[in-house]
Nucleic acid binder design. Structure first.
Length: 274
DNA sequence: CTTCACGCCTGTCAGC
DNA sequence: TGCTGACAGGCGTGAA
């Protein structure tokens, strides 16, 4: 479900609510979502810890807890985190319930149950390879034009697949990759190393612009995504190509096409993207 | 090392 | 109405 803008929006909406709160107990209704350590150990470690800070890296959320522990959550396709007071309805697909000392709850809900949770001391985060091997993310100081040029230079795979590789760039997913390529005027099946300097520069700017817009609009809601307050995002109203098959391109009026690239649904304007 | 197909899960929707 | 197949915002694994 969520990509960088959605996870960042969840972080912002949840942060002020969970910070400083102490976890009284944890109910684990679907233990297989816990990837490290075992579910009983996870429960034991998290219980009675205080949330110090809520951070994000790519699409991972990191709850920094007291005693140097970090709870890591990846929402994958349909994971959702809700903060709620006891009077509010519980999501039908709730699999974990964290109850705070004041009675409020943090719910982890997930329709397809592909999400993953971990808890470990900060010094052991290297265990999560997707986190420790993640490339620089858009809008960060490490994500520069020369970095993008370097990773494109020797790769002959499709540009779309490269942009989805979290080890190269962290945080981009299917929506924002399609949108970035549309804004840059680049066809998703172009070989990465075939981009000109001008196209690479346009792509660099497009990625940052699209991610910033996604954050500014509080994320994109197609179906499942909600922020930490259970509210939908707004960026779906600003999409150029994603989910717009057979609708008209706002620039040239051509019909947006949908194909498959690297096994992922892919949307582009056949007239504007080369 | 890069690239690709596949599996993991469950729900929704279009088409027949 | 009921059924079937395609599709879904992600990523780890194993094979070529």
């Amino acid at each position: 479900m969520p990509e960088l803008p959605e996870v960042e929006t969840i972080r912002r909406t949840l942060s002020k609510k969970v910070q400083g709160k102490t976890i009284r107990c944890v109910e684990i209704l679907l233990p297989r979502l816990i990837k490290w350590p075992s579910a009983p150990e996870f429960q034991a470690v998290v219980t009675h810890k205080t949330v110090k800070n809520l951070a994000r890296r790519g699409k991972y959320l990191l709850f920094y807890l007291s005693e140097g522990q970090v709870m890591v959550v990846h929402l994958r396709m349909t994971g959702r985190l809700y903060y709620r007071t006891p009077d509010m309805a519980r999501d039908r697909f709730t699999h974990l319930v964290f109850t705070f000392e004041n009675g409020d709850e943090l719910l982890y809900a997930d329709t397809r149950t592909l999400g993953t949770l971990y808890v470990m001391p900060e010094g052991e985060l290297w265990r999560i390879s997707g986190l420790s091997q993640m490339g620089p993310e858009p809008l960060s100081a490490e994500f520069t034009l020369s970095y993008l040029q370097t990773i494109l230079a020797k790769r002959k795979g499709k540009i779309k697949s490269l942009l989805l590789n979290q080890n190269l760039i962290g945080g981009l997913g299917n929506i924002y990759v399609d949108e970035s390529l549309a804004l840059a005027g680049i066809h998703p099946e172009r070989a990465a190393n075939s981009l000109t300097d001008e196209e690479t520069k346009n792509l660099f700017q497009a990625i940052n612009q699209v991610i910033q817009a996604g954050i500014d609009h509080g994320g994109t809601t197609f179906r499942d995504y909600r922020n930490g307050e259970g509210k939908s995002g707004d960026h779906q109203r600003h999409l150029r190509v994603y989910g717009r098959k057979n609708q008209l391109c706002a620039i040239c009026g051509s019909k947006i096409e949908r194909t498959e690239v690297g096994g992922r649904g892919t949307h582009y304007c056949p007239h504007c993207q080369h």
